[in-house]
């Protein structure tokens, strides 16, 4: 699924510079616990989260996650956004809750999540 399609499904806005709407992701992970994200990584994954601190971007950098959706209308801190831009991480924001956003992406065909 492309980031363009994710934005359409979630009515999400791109928030980062040089947003790559053609980037493809194959699976998703929804969590506010970066510990859990680190424990169950997959490649070509989009992260959905309500956590907006810079450690989200650090976690993405470590796991080579190139796309993040911030849910419930939360906006990343300026520091987090700067880190995203530096590391080529595509950031989106939606007003949907984490649960609803996850459900809509699943319904839209993004099935595969964490291992197991």
């Amino acid at each position: 699924m492309t980031l363009k399609r994710i934005c359409e499904i979630l009515s999400a806005q791109p928030l980062s510079d040089n947003f790559d709407e053609d980037l493809e992701v194959q699976c998703a992970c929804s969590s506010d616990m970066m510990s859990d994200v680190l424990a169950f990584p997959k490649e070509h994954m989009v992260l959905l989260t309500g956590l907006v601190n810079p450690q989200v971007m650090r976690t993405c950098d470590m796991l080579d996650i190139r796309a993040v959706v911030f849910t419930r209308g939360k906006l990343p801190s300026a520091e987090a956004l700067e880190m995203a831009n530096e590391n080529g991480i595509n950031v989106m924001g939606t007003h949907l809750t984490l649960f609803i956003a996850s459900g809509k992406l699943y319904e839209g065909g993004l099935y595969n999540g964490t291992k197991g």
């Binding site: 506010d32 616990m33 970066m34 510990s35 859990d36 680190l38 424990a39 450690q55 989200v56």
Partner: peptide, 24 residues
């Protein structure tokens, strides 16, 4: 053991302390 953690609530608010670190 996964899930065991002595992290404070403040640390959990930062998104860490789920008790997965050492096992991971």
């Amino acid at each position: 053991s996964e899930g065991y953690s002595t992290a404070s609530d403040d640390v959990r608010m930062m998104g860490f302390g789920a008790g997965m670190g050492l096992a991971n």
